[in-house]
């Protein structure tokens, strides 16, 4: 139990081993982050340079478009993460249960797409999402089902559902409702892109999972799905957490997919940053947006850490209470 208690000060050899990666992080992560933050407190000049110290950039950030864009970015990233995890868990489970030979074949083929350029793959999707394609037909069916599901609801509820991205804003029109240049295309291709990043950590956790635990659960009376939910899912929690981070963080920063497949319908904060930095040549403004984005990533992480802490202290309290209860009851038992 004590072996996970490390000494606070590592010895020299440990320092030497960790120093390079530490330096790397400091040089290419910490320093640029500070520079970006510093830029936000500068103005910009017409030639695309960084101007004097000023708060003008933060004042400019009060753009009526931004809240909606930040909300859309978070919402779409959440959707992409959710779908990636929902698809990745059964995949990882299935791969972990295969024979070692098949495991490496399938795990390898999941990585196969990375051998081709990301941009080329997104272009390929552009072809697949063409209005004459079968995906367009599927999309129309999807829209119609959605309309049928939510169309009868009162207007304010519909508005809320549109805000949540569950319902579509306008009526379905086969001529204009194309999957290309839609939010659906962005979510679909993002899930396609990030799925391997979700599968891999979950698979790594699932591979270490002791599947005889599922048998033990069934032996004690659990149905298959119950055992999966109560034993397998908690058992791979570490993998799930990394998978969520591996998908959510790049999804929030993605701009190539919305740029190429989202049209005017789906502009995310990544696209805005790109626009400000490259087209408007306003580096401080782009930096401020990037900072905003980083903060919006850190908030959920901070929240989840706070939640876990709360959960832990609650567990500890429960433990103390229950131990006290057990002690008194065993004392009573002793008297009899």
């Amino acid at each position: 139990m004590n072996d996970n208690k490390r000494t606070r000060f590592p010895n020299r050899a440990e320092w030497l081993v960790t120093a390079p990666s530490f330096l790397w992080l400091a040089l290419f992560f910490a320093v640029p982050a500070v520079i970006v933050l510093a830029f936000t407190f500068h103005g910009h000049d017409a030639s695309g340079g960084v101007g004097e110290w000023s708060l003008s950039t933060w004042r400019e950030l009060v753009d009526p478009d931004y809240p909606a864009i930040v909300w859309n970015t978070l919402r779409i990233s959440f959707e992409v993460t959710l779908w990636s995890i929902v698809l990745a868990v059964p995949c990882a489970y299935a791969i972990a249960r295969m024979s070692p030979k098949w495991r490496s074949i399938v795990a390898g083929s999941i990585m196969l797409p990375f051998w081709t350029s990301f941009v080329v793959r997104v272009f390929a999707w552009k072809t697949m999402l063409h209005p004459d394609g079968w995906l367009q037909a599927c999309y129309l069916v999807f829209l119609r089902v959605r309309e049928w599901l939510f169309g009868w609801l009162p207007a304010f509820l519909q508005k809320a559902l549109v805000l949540l991205g569950v319902a579509s804003s306008g009526p379905v029109d086969p001529a204009t409702s194309t999957i290309l240049d839609s939010e659906a295309a962005v979510v679909l291709v993002s899930v396609y892109t990030f799925l391997p990043f979700a599968i891999m950590p979950i698979y790594t956790a699932a591979e270490k999972f002791d599947f005889s635990l599922l048998e033990a659960a069934r032996d004690l009376g659990a149905k298959n799905f119950y055992a999966f939910r109560k034993i397998f899912i908690p058992g791979i929690r570490q993998g799930l957490v990394s998978a969520v981070l591996m998908v959510f963080i790049p999804a929030i920063g993605s701009y190539v997919i919305p740029q190429m497949l989202g049209g005017t319908d789906c502009v995310l904060i990544g696209n805005k940053i790109f626009m400000r930095a490259i087209q408007n040549r306003n580096i401080p403004h782009a930096s401020a947006l990037a900072t905003l984005m980083a903060v919006s990533v850190l908030i959920p992480i901070g929240l989840s850490m706070w939640w876990k802490k709360r959960q832990d202290s609650r567990d500890r309290r429960r433990l103390e209470e229950q131990t006290a209860r057990l002690m008194t009851s065993s004392m009573e038992g002793g008297v009899q």
Binding site: S212, A216, A217, R218, L220, G221, A222, I231, P234, R237
Partner: peptide, 21 residues
């Protein structure tokens, strides 16, 4: 099915659920 019989096993490796107390 295993969950339909009131027969319980003590497994060789114990198979205790590690995420539960």
């Amino acid at each position: 099915a295993p969950n339909q019989r009131r027969v319980h096993t003590v497994f060789q490796n114990y198979a205790l659920f590690p995420t539960m107390t």
